[in-house]
Each structure stands twice: as structure tokens, then as C-alpha cells.
Design a protein around this nucleic acid. Structure first.
Lengths: 192, 192
DNA sequence: TTGACAAGAGAACAAATGTTCTCTATAATG
DNA sequence: CATTATAGAGAACATTTGTTCTCTTGTCAA
């Protein structure tokens, strides 16, 4: 089994997974690779398992790993950007899994307004909000101020809770009665 | 079929998919729901298909939709943050699919240094880099300057190409001979 | 009480599943 | 040349797959 054709098979497998969000059956593999023998395909699959692209659970069920569906993570910018030839991977990972700890309590919002500009959050950014987290001082939260939802820093000065924008234009907000927090911002995403 | 138990089944299905990255078989569904009849399970599955959590391809193969594996997207912050009761979803989507157009040419890097601070990119951020894109003026690129990789704006003044940091501390860089570009930054991610 | 309805058990079915063989043709190596 | 290794074809297999039935039970409303 040459290295080149293995890479080609790996590529096709990844493409299949992206398209159907599941691993192919042997019959589909046969069509994918133009090979009729299930025996040969079984060897292919075993190779994928050896390379950790796939893990087998009880009953021969196949489970993909981040090596198959994840994004390639290189080191830091300054550490260098390897060429295609080098390909020094640090890790592979899924953005969904990396950014979202509690999928059932997590939402995404589009940012409008400039109240968090000094925190590097600008209009058009998307923020990922975790509803299940309890805000800590310094956290950015989605808060309801006068019936309107905004992004603010959650502050706590000796037990007295208030909100602060990351923009000197806006004054601090000291809630008179109750403060409604929609969730804690756990991630900010900007797409160019 | 009561609404409450349907929601419970939906939740378990989503959990199963997150864990195994594939949809369960009928036997696994039976264990999941504590029901022995395949006939009943078949009705469950049909309900999932009706609700667009799942799509059936030829041969009864099941394909999950973003409604099943995606993140919930609400409107903008100012537009309001619906309560759990309201749940006004705008969309569901996968971050992987949303952020990454060319998975095979896309990498992730950790940012170090302060050269792009005015662009809202700070140390510790992660940038997603597309190697296959051709840089346009104004794009942020991963560039090799004097054997070191850095983030810079890609500039073009009347045919003359140069690099500019988003930080007044650093001067423009006019490459004498050749400019090596590692890729174009398509997204920035900050995790708190 | 009666009737209508829905949920689940259980059985039956053809088709597809993954695995393990043997055998042949080809390529690589001495 | 002879030898060894490798890839694929093809067949056989025990399971498991999804689908479609019938039958029983329980629930709710009239």
C-alpha cells in the first residue's frame, strides 16, 4: 500500500464525512475507492484505525476522531508557520467542541453597537454566550438594562454589583433593583 | 406521543450524536429510550425526520442536520435576548462549517506579540488561516519577515506591495525581494 | 360502558452490515 | 530467474440493519 494512495483515500474519507456527517459503509467505500473487494476495504479501514483517524467501538461501529473531522492547529505565529512539506501539527480539534463546553446552554449572538469596543468587541462580531455560567467580576455578560439587552462588564465592588461598558463614552450602570443577566460571554468570533 | 417525552428523546438523541459523532441504530435507540419495540422506535425516528433533525438518504441511511448538531443562533444583542420560554431561534449552525470554507487549506494559529493590537487581535487569540486564498489589500496575512512569521496587513500602493502592522509602534515593511505569505486570516477567535 | 385512539411488544422479512477466508495477478527484491 | 510480498477479487458467514406487520394494553372522551 503506497503512501500516496493512502493519503488519497484519507482525503476522500474526510470529504465523505464532511458531506454526510457519518462514516461510510463498506459498500460506499467500494464506490469511493473504485475497489470491489470487501477484504481490501477491510484492510483500508484497519489502516485508518491504526492511524487514529477512526476508533472502533463494540460491534465494529466506527467513531471518527478529531484527526478526521477536526481543524489542524499549528503552533503560534512567532513560533513559525510550517510549509506544506513540513506539516508540523501541534493538534487537531473541532471548533464546536473547543469553544462550547455546555452545548445545551450555549447560544450565539451578533453584536451591534460600540459599548465593548475597548474590549476588542466591535459591531458585527459574534459572541458565544453560556447561560449556565454564573458571572464573575470582570466577565463580559449579556445584561438587560432598561428593557434592552447589551454587552457589559460584570463588576463587583465590595458586594455592590454594577455594569461597566468597555467604552469611556458610556457611564457605569448601577441597577436600582434587580439585574437580569442573560449569560456570560465565553468567546468572541470575528469573521472577515 | 406527548410533547414532553418527545423533547426528552430529542435531547438524548443529540447527546448520543455528540458522544459518538453518528446517529444511533435502532438497537441503540431501544437502549437509549428503554423501549423494546422496533416498531415504536421507527415512529420516533419518523418524528425526528418530520422535525428536520434528521434527513433520510437512499437506503434509509440517516444524516443529521444542523438542527441536531448545530449551535443555536439568536438575533443581535440589541434585538433582544429571548428567555428560555420564548426561544426565538434565528438559525442553527456549526461553527466548523460557518468559519471554515476550505477545510483542507485551513489552519489555526495562536497569536503572540502585539503587532495587530489596533485591529483587535491580541496575544492569546487564535486566528484561522486560509492558505488557499490570495491576499487582497487590507487583508490580514501571515507573512514571513526576516525569517520570522508575523501577522500584518497586506497593503498595495499603486502596485507596490508592503506590510503594515496594526500598531503604530512598528514601521511599515517594504520587502526588498520576495514576500512569503503563509495565508490569509479569515477569522479571529478569543476564548475567555 | 362503549368506542376511538395511541403506544409499545413482538414477530417476520429482505437487505446490508463487518469480518474472515482463499485464490490470483502483479510488483518488488534478491 | 526464482522468491517474496502485496493488492485486489470473490465467496462465505453470522449479525445487524431498517421496515412493516399484527396484537395487546392502556388512556381518554363521549
Amino acid at each position: 500500500m503506497s503512501q500516496k494512495t493512502y493519503e488519497a483515500r484519507k482525503f476522500k474519507l474526510i470529504q465523505f464525512y464532511r458531506k454526510f456527517r457519518r462514516l461510510p459503509t463498506y459498500e460506499e467505500l467500494a464506490e469511493l475507492y473504485g475497489v470491489k473487494s470487501k477484504g481490501s476495504l477491510h484492510k483500508y479501514v484497519q489502516k485508518f484505525v491504526d492511524e487514529d483517524l477512526i476508533v472502533k467501538s463494540e460491534g465494529g461501529k466506527l467513531i471518527p476522531t478529531t484527526k478526521l473531522y477536526g481543524l489542524r492547529v499549528l503552533g503560534s505565529v512567532q513560533a513559525g508557520f510550517p510549509t506544506v512539506a513540513e506539516e508540523e501539527l501541534v493538534d487537531t480539534m473541532s471548533l464546536d467542541e473547543y469553544l462550547i463546553a455546555n452545548p445545551d446552554a450555549t447560544y450565539m449572538l451578533t453584536v451591534s453597537g460600540d459599548s465593548m469596543i475597548d474590549a476588542g468587541i466591535v459591531e458585527g462580531d459574534m459572541v458565544i454566550v453560556d447561560r449556565s455560567k454564573t458571572p464573575k467580576p470582570g466577565d463580559i455578560v449579556v445584561a438587560n438594562v432598561d428593557g434592552e439587552w447589551t454587552l457589559k462588564y460584570f463588576m463587583d465592588r465590595s458586594g455592590k454589583i454594577f455594569l461597566r461598558a468597555a467604552n469611556k463614552k458610556y457611564p457605569d450602570i448601577h441597577p436600582q433593583d434587580e439585574l437580569t443577566i442573560g449569560g456570560v460571554v465565553i468567546s468572541v468570533i470575528r469573521k472577515y
